[in-house]
Design a protein around this nucleic acid. Structure first.
Ligand code: ZN
Ligand code: ZN
Ligand code: ZN
Ligand code: ZN
Lengths: 118, 118
DNA sequence: GAAGCAGGTCACGAGGTCAG
DNA sequence: CTGACCTCGTGACCTGCTTC
């Protein structure tokens, strides 16, 4: 018998349901929970609002702000630059997290004060 | 059989995988000293914080970190794999120490989500 | 006034360090 | 290898400003 501290990514509770809901619209991370809650388009956590042009959580909002304030150069991804970014593992690879932030459209002047939400 | 910190896939905390074990959990180690001090759930030493999803001491925190980083393969327990893990003897059997760490729910992404609404 | 976001704050924990 | 100590990124809250 072997004790191996291997760590693989696990998906605790989120993302399980998606199939039924996903049928209607876009892929999972863009969807609403219900009529009121919106998900972070970067990591899928509960979004706290529309930040930098994208529905995002407090974590990704703060991360993106820090990234652009100080012009941080994150260490390149040690894998294949395709790390999945989820709430549980979003802090593992800063490079891919910022890449995802940009990919989903975060930008400094992404103002939209219309009643986007729900 | 292979034991890994978080390969199990779901919350290790509740999934001690046996219905019977849950009935008589480790009594003392989960408790607090008083209103302020908390004990390490692995060895019962004074916890220094909430590490890897579990209240734990600096020792068990560092031990678990090392176990995760390098994929250490500890020598199997020479006894019956049920060594008690206490502050005074926690370094005697690495195998059982890591086993205990996993049993109490330590995981790489074990963050404190106490502030998350639902 | 109400609502909603940019930016600041700072306790907290992940990961590093290095004598022992 | 262990663990007391250290550094610094994270994110839940807070504040002030902008837009209805
Ligand atoms: Zn996010
Ligand atoms: Zn990556
Ligand atoms: Zn301990
Ligand atoms: Zn043992």
């Amino acid at each position: 018998m072997i004790l191996s501290p291997d760590s693989s990514g696990q998906l605790p509770e989120s993302t399980t349901d998606s199939n039924t809901m996903a049928s209607h619209r876009e892929p999972a991370l863009n969807l609403e929970f219900d009529g009121t809650t919106v998900l972070c388009r970067v990591c899928g956590d509960k979004a706290s609002g529309f930040h930098y042009g994208v529905h995002s959580c407090e974590g990704c909002k703060g991360f993106f702000r820090r990234s652009i304030q100080q012009k941080i150069q994150y260490r390149p991804c040690t894998k294949n630059q395709q790390c999945s970014i989820l709430r549980i593992n979003r802090n593992r690879c800063q490079y891919c997290r910022l890449k995802k932030c940009i990919a989903v459209g975060m930008s400094r002047d992404g103002k939209c004060y219309k009643h986007y939400g729900i």
